[in-house]
Nucleic acid binder design. Structure first.
Lengths: 108, 108
DNA sequence: AACGTACATTGCAATATTGCGATGATTTTA
DNA sequence: TAAAATCATCGCAATATTGCAATGTACGTT
């Protein structure tokens, strides 16, 4: 019924899934890519670069904020967005551990 | 309108996003985790372990197959699922490259 | 105070996702 | 060949996501 049964899974599984979910849209990938190249950007920068409407970008920024990957600081009339180093480190370690497994599959 | 404008993004951005999206559900995380531990499983194994209905598991398996992370081989009346080593390597490298960046953010 | 700028929020329409019962397809077994 | 086992697909309901126009909010400028 369109609702994920997250109580069936461990916290780690849910955390990993929600981070992956946040990265699961090209606009959000593009936002982070721009942040990696430019250090800090405000909402208008993303709108210009990505070419989606301002409310749409704002919503994508909100989702990235919700999982903690980015954070925004109000600076006068604009908001400076940048990557959260702590969460970034958490993600890097989570995914590295996740993928860095010696797969011993012998069935195919 | 509920439809992702993927033509606005690069192929790499779309690829990374679709892999992340496939990982963006705890049931699919649990499926892969089980595959990492047990080498090979059939659909019934996942149903038993995860506790979702068989059609639901089957659909999650399909999505993982669509991005190439897993592959299934028919073995008699059952289907042997295992991780695709090629795509696994691709994912590992994509994410490692993606996260392994020296962030020089100085704004916050 | 009035206006402009920058961003968030609201409300809406279109589409996608999640989950499952019922049913279909395929292979093995009796 | 009939029955059983295993999985995929269909069809549906509930909910989530995507995108945007309109509007709200907060700060700076004149």
């Amino acid at each position: 019924m369109g609702v994920t049964k997250s109580d069936k899974f461990t916290e780690e599984q849910n955390r990993l899934a929600s981070i992956a979910k946040a990265l699961g849209h090209p606009a959000r990938i593009a936002i982070i890519q721009q942040l990696k190249e430019k250090d800090a950007c405000n909402c208008g920068d993303f709108v210009k670069e990505i070419g989606l409407a301002q409310p749409t970008i704002s919503q994508h920024l909100k989702e990235l904020r919700n999982v903690g990957i980015i954070k925004g600081t109000v600076e006068g009339t604009s908001v400076c967005y940048c990557i959260s180093h702590d969460t970034w480190k958490e993600c890097r370690e989570l995914f590295a551990e996740w993928f860095n497994v010696d797969l011993g599959c012998s069935c195919c």
